[in-house]
Amino acid sequence: MSAEPKAEPRAVPRARRAARRPVTPYLRVVGAIAWKDLRAEIRSRELINSMVLFTLMTVLIFSLALELDKEARQTTVAGVLWVTVIFAGILGLGRSLAAEKDRGSLDALLLAPIDRSALFFGKMLGNLLFVLVVALVLVALLTVLFNVSLFEPRLLVVLGLGTLGFSTVGTLLSSMSVHARAREAMLPILLMPVVLPVLISAVRASTAILEQMPRADWLPWIQLLAVADVMFLVGAYVLFDYVVEE
C-alpha cells in the first residue's frame, strides 16, 4: 500500500478508484453506525422511553379490552406480545431514519466512502437493538402482569428471529417512507403486509411453545421464520442501494 502508488505514473485515476473502494473494513462501518445510534440514544433516551411507555400502555389496553381470564391469557399472550412489539417497533423505525433525514445527517452518511449495504446493516442493527430491548421489557412485563412465564429459551430464539426479520424489512421500508408525503402513516401501511410472513410464523411458533405443544407444532414455524429472515436480509442487501442512491 505504501510504495505502490508512487511507482504508478498515472496517479489520478488510481486515487479515484481507491476513493471509490471503501477504506474502512466493512464490519467496522456497520459497528460504527450502530454504535452511533446507540450512543445518541443512551444520551437522549427519547426513543426508548417513548417505546417502553407505549408498550406499557398497549399491554394495559389489551388486558382491559380483552378482559383476560387465566386460560385466555395463556392462549392470547403470544399475540399480545407480537402485536405490541410490531407497533412499538414501527414507532422506533419511523423515528430512526426520519431524524437522520431531518438533521441532514443522512446525506453525510451517504457521502461517506463506505459500502451502502454497510450503512443499511448499521442502521438495521441499531433498530434491531431497540426492538429487542422493547421485546425483552415486554417479556418481563407480560410475565409479571399476565402471570405466564415467558422466559423460555425457545421463545427467546423466536423473539430474536422475529425481531431480526422485522427490523430488516422495517429499515428498508422506512428509508423509503421518509421521502413520502404523510410518512408516519405510510410506514405501517407499507410494512405490515410485507412483514406478515414473519409475524404469522412468530405468533404461531410462540403460541405453540407456550402451550407446550409437541415439536412438530412449532418447529416448522421457526424454520419458516428463518427462511423469511434470510430472504428479507438478501432482498434488503440488494435493494437498499437503489433506495438511497441520489
Binding site: 424489512v169 428498508l172 421521502h179 410472513p197 423469511a228 428479507f232 432482498g235 435493494l239 437503489y242 433506495v243
Partner: peptide, 25 residues
C-alpha cells in the same frame, strides 16, 4: 405518496419486488 417521478418509479420497483414475499407466502 411520492412526488418526484424518478424516485416514485424507483421506490415502486423496490416495493414491487419486496411485496412478492406475500405471494410466495
Amino acid at each position: 405518496g411520492i412526488e418526484d417521478p424518478e424516485r416514485r418509479r424507483r421506490f415502486a420497483a423496490v416495493y414491487g419486488i419486496i411485496a412478492f414475499a406475500s405471494v410466495i407466502f
